[in-house]
Simulated assay, not measured.
Amino acid sequence: MDLRQRFADPTEQQDAAGRGLQAGMWTAVPCTIVSVDYGKQTCSVQPTQKVAVRKPDGSQEWQSLPVLPDAPLHFPGGGGVSLTFPVKAGDEALAIIASRPTDSWQQSGGEQQQNARRMHDLSDAFVMVGFRSNPKALSGMSSDAVQLRSDDGLASIALKPNGQMDINTPGAINIAAASDVNYTGTINVTGDIVLNGISLKTHKHTGVTTGGDNTGGPVS
């Protein structure tokens, strides 16, 4: 039995009531991605903080919170451009709990009337990925550049305050443009450049003659 049920203490009663209200008010909770709907940019997440539940016999049991479904997933964006991530199940995230219902806004966008009176409810979560617990912290983070990188650090694009940009990848870099690719500056290449199967380093020319004539086209 809870001892507060045996002794009448108005101050303790008020404190208990306040703590009870706080216990039902959610603001933010760490969670794990369960599934992602890329079509709607929403996800289902499992909160990772268990809650203590007092049983009828007075004992206490730690229980998992329910999965939060269909929560809007945050991708940074604005002005007609966005940055997206291949979010997958198991990724760590933070669920931000709205102070009022978000159903009408999520369905229709714009300014909407509230369709319920709930406040700080777990069902009104917005999810942000990128937060990490200590065991999943990234290694080799740059302290002098902003990076777009793979978690293992093998592939990265880094921009430094002095304007220098570094690109590193163990694989290929593919560029597809509907129009011309224009470049101004000097290109220093270690290796070779291959254009339509013709090596810039080892190609030969046809129609070679002495004198002032031009050679023929290059061959692979």
Rank of each mutant, 00 (worst) to 15 (best):
residue 49 Q to H: 14
residue 46 Q to H: 09
residue 79 G to P: 01
residue 52 A to S: 14
residue 45 V to Q: 00
residue 50 K to A: 12
residue 33 I to G: 04
residue 39 G to I: 01
residue 70 D to M: 05
residue 70 D to Y: 03
residue 87 V to H: 05
residue 83 L to G: 03
residue 70 D to F: 01
residue 71 A to Q: 12
residue 74 H to G: 01
residue 74 H to P: 02
residue 65 L to E: 03
residue 94 L to M: 15
residue 81 V to Q: 14
residue 80 G to R: 07
residue 59 S to I: 11
residue 74 H to D: 07
residue 75 F to K: 05
residue 35 S to Y: 02
residue 62 W to N: 12
residue 45 V to I: 14
residue 81 V to M: 15
residue 35 S to P: 08
residue 88 K to W: 05
residue 36 V to F: 02
residue 49 Q to C: 14
residue 92 E to N: 02
residue 47 P to F: 03
residue 33 I to L: 03
residue 48 T to S: 15
residue 76 P to K: 10
residue 82 S to N: 11
residue 38 Y to E: 12
residue 45 V to S: 06
residue 48 T to K: 08
residue 40 K to N: 14
residue 55 K to T: 10
residue 71 A to I: 01
residue 69 P to E: 15
residue 39 G to A: 06
residue 84 T to Q: 14
residue 62 W to D: 11
residue 65 L to C: 06
residue 65 L to D: 03
residue 54 R to T: 15
residue 55 K to E: 15
residue 53 V to E: 14
residue 55 K to Q: 15
residue 94 L to F: 03
residue 39 G to Y: 01
residue 68 L to G: 00
residue 63 Q to V: 15
residue 83 L to A: 07
residue 33 I to F: 05
residue 47 P to T: 07
residue 71 A to D: 05
residue 95 A to M: 08
residue 57 D to N: 14
residue 92 E to R: 08
residue 82 S to K: 12
residue 55 K to N: 14
residue 52 A to W: 09
residue 67 V to R: 00
residue 87 V to L: 13
residue 50 K to N: 13
residue 48 T to P: 06
residue 84 T to F: 11
residue 95 A to I: 06
residue 36 V to C: 05
residue 89 A to S: 15
residue 50 K to V: 13
residue 72 P to K: 06
residue 80 G to H: 10
residue 82 S to M: 14
residue 72 P to E: 04
residue 84 T to N: 13
residue 88 K to P: 08
residue 38 Y to P: 09
residue 45 V to L: 07
residue 61 E to L: 11
residue 45 V to K: 04
residue 62 W to P: 01
residue 36 V to W: 00
residue 76 P to S: 12
residue 82 S to Q: 13
residue 87 V to Q: 06
residue 49 Q to K: 09
residue 69 P to R: 08
residue 36 V to R: 02
residue 53 V to W: 09
residue 94 L to R: 08
residue 95 A to H: 01
residue 90 G to L: 06
residue 37 D to Q: 05
residue 58 G to Q: 09
residue 65 L to R: 10
residue 36 V to I: 10
residue 66 P to D: 10
residue 78 G to W: 07
residue 52 A to I: 11
residue 74 H to Y: 12
residue 87 V to G: 05
residue 74 H to N: 07
residue 57 D to E: 07
residue 53 V to I: 15
residue 83 L to N: 12
residue 48 T to W: 05
residue 88 K to E: 12
residue 40 K to C: 07
residue 78 G to V: 13
residue 73 L to T: 03
residue 44 S to W: 04
residue 77 G to L: 09
residue 77 G to C: 08
residue 87 V to K: 05
residue 91 D to G: 00
residue 49 Q to T: 11
residue 76 P to T: 06
residue 47 P to Q: 04
residue 69 P to C: 03
residue 45 V to E: 04
residue 39 G to N: 05
residue 70 D to I: 00
